[in-house]
Design a protein around this nucleic acid. Sequence first.
DNA 1: AATGAATGAGACTTCATTCAT
DNA 2: GATGAATGAAGTCTCATTCAT
Lengths: 199, 199, 199, 199
Amino acid sequence: MTEKSRPLRADAARNRARVLQVAYETFAEEGAGVPIDEIARRAGVGAGTVYRHFPTKESLFQAIVADRLQQVVERAREQAAADPGEGLYAFLFHMAEQGATDLGLTEAFAGIGFDLAAALPDAEKEFTGMMAEILTQAQRAGTVRSDLDVADIKTLIVGLQAMRRFRGDSELMHRVYPVIRAGLAAPDASPDGATDASA
Amino acid sequence: MTEKSRPLRADAARNRARVLQVAYETFAEEGAGVPIDEIARRAGVGAGTVYRHFPTKESLFQAIVADRLQQVVERAREQAAADPGEGLYAFLFHMAEQGATDLGLTEAFAGIGFDLAAALPDAEKEFTGMMAEILTQAQRAGTVRSDLDVADIKTLIVGLQAMRRFRGDSELMHRVYPVIRAGLAAPDASPDGATDASA
Amino acid sequence: MTEKSRPLRADAARNRARVLQVAYETFAEEGAGVPIDEIARRAGVGAGTVYRHFPTKESLFQAIVADRLQQVVERAREQAAADPGEGLYAFLFHMAEQGATDLGLTEAFAGIGFDLAAALPDAEKEFTGMMAEILTQAQRAGTVRSDLDVADIKTLIVGLQAMRRFRGDSELMHRVYPVIRAGLAAPDASPDGATDASA
Amino acid sequence: MTEKSRPLRADAARNRARVLQVAYETFAEEGAGVPIDEIARRAGVGAGTVYRHFPTKESLFQAIVADRLQQVVERAREQAAADPGEGLYAFLFHMAEQGATDLGLTEAFAGIGFDLAAALPDAEKEFTGMMAEILTQAQRAGTVRSDLDVADIKTLIVGLQAMRRFRGDSELMHRVYPVIRAGLAAPDASPDGATDASA
DNA sequence: AATGAATGAGACTTCATTCAT
DNA sequence: GATGAATGAAGTCTCATTCAT
């Protein structure tokens, strides 16, 4: 998905990577509203260069999201391999971290003005598949209640990212994560879906 | 903060209220990007009339948020009075519902492009005070762990709103709320901030 | 078609007319490639004002064409009423004159980058209907051969406009029109469509 | 004007010819608005190569027109040699055909955004000279009225090309050409330049 | 010589805000 | 007070032309 047709000239590849990196940082800082001209300026190239590599703003956005998802997937698989019981938690917290600085990824993930499954079906499948794997591993290890599925995890990620943007890392880690973790580790809810009233 | 100087002519007051209502609905439906002209059109007034009552788009936005907060505060107090143990949960879920249809309020609340405490200090204080009250009542009733404070609740609201935007009401209610509720009802975390359970 | 809903405020109507006039002249001089900004500048208004009245460049173009067609139709009907035998010729020569200064109308008429029947079906029908009337009148008067139809007349207009743009009015009038007129007044071609070889 | 300085390397000459051919076809199909990049792509060369041979888009355009004129001149001379009485008609109809598919040539010829005599004086002279020859031959053969000159023929070509672009070949041939031909073959107009009455 | 990447001016269009009516 | 027209600063994107590879 990254390389197509010819392998791109060295200088072009450098520029493309630079634009991608700068765009990633800029979107992360400022959200999707940043003008392309601003990204071009920060990258030290002309606006036309950005458009040569990414014919629309949307496509630049997609390229960034695809790139980030790829990295996230790899990292999550490694961590789950090292510790299956903790893999899902590590992933959740990593995604939250991403959300802190990466408004663009968060918006994409939460489907704000961006339909991930439609725009990047392959990346989305890969991502969802990875989540299924590490969720299953955690459930087998007994660290996560067994009645949750991938859609629930996605939902929680959206929530965690929003929380992380709202609040500093350290506070979230010490005060809110424990709540979420306790909820995730709790025994399964009763069949009717209501909380099991230990409360 | 709502009434200033002289008490608006009757028709002007009517217009103001109408604009506020329409703007609330429109922002909720379409997000903050809607042109003022569109709001004016829907309200059946000229753009100039909107600007007479709200000198900037930002100020219109603030007025809406203040208005919504006021309503939310009243409702939450009533519910907590009726059932102190459930008041906080009712409030949380109500806020999540708001987030579903009220993109504007959510963004304001989550601090996206809007600093609530700076823009509307009085409303913010009122809102925070109310949350302190109902949190304390719930903790006294034993339905919420005692190591949580208002900032934690705010954080959870931000997360719940994001989750609710991401996922339908019914699914959230049956699959994710139980997790959050289990986490909130869990025994206090150990002093070092980690979850005490299996961890 | 000209007036819709409300009758437009006096100043707005003035501006609209001014923009239409300036745009007409500018397109006529420079063709359809002129930037809207240039038209706005010449009209002494902001670009936004042009867009308020004509939401796209295309729509401005259409408005001009519709306006011109309307005038042409009226004039042609008057002339044909005054002298049925000469009405068609007067119309043809008038259209050629228009083509001289009105690149925009010519392009629209010749269908260059503009589908008249699709864009302005009513105006197109009116225009075609008028041509049918004056052609029939001329044929009854015996000044035009009877085997020609409206499509042929349209074709000749396109040709005459192109010729008029290429060559000065006086020369065209004295040197080329006589050729066309002689051809139009010639006896009908033989049934197989070939010239009747008086040549 | 075609060859300058040293005689181009073989591959360069091949590239030049290929670009010229492709550019001709592309302009003919799409009009003068086509980006140079598109022409380069279709020719299978880099944009830089186009610019090496033709320093501006304008100069590429001129080279094409010169090339086409050359071919038209040759063909017309051959046909006039074969049949002097029909040579002019064959030429006229051939030019009209060209106009159908060759928007670039037509625009150049009609002087739309292009001054042929100024840009390509030699080609223009050659072209005009050829027209004088075949017009004289037709007039001697008695197939064309004797009061027409080369400028009139040029004018008619412009008109015919416009008509041909507007209408299909077959219809033009059977319905409009006869009119033009009848006009061209008609007896001379009276001295004052007006059409000689009903004739 | 060829390539195709980079440039940057400029086109169309939107919209928050001001102001004449 | 209300109206809605006017403004003009952006924003996205295109493309003729230049230049490093």
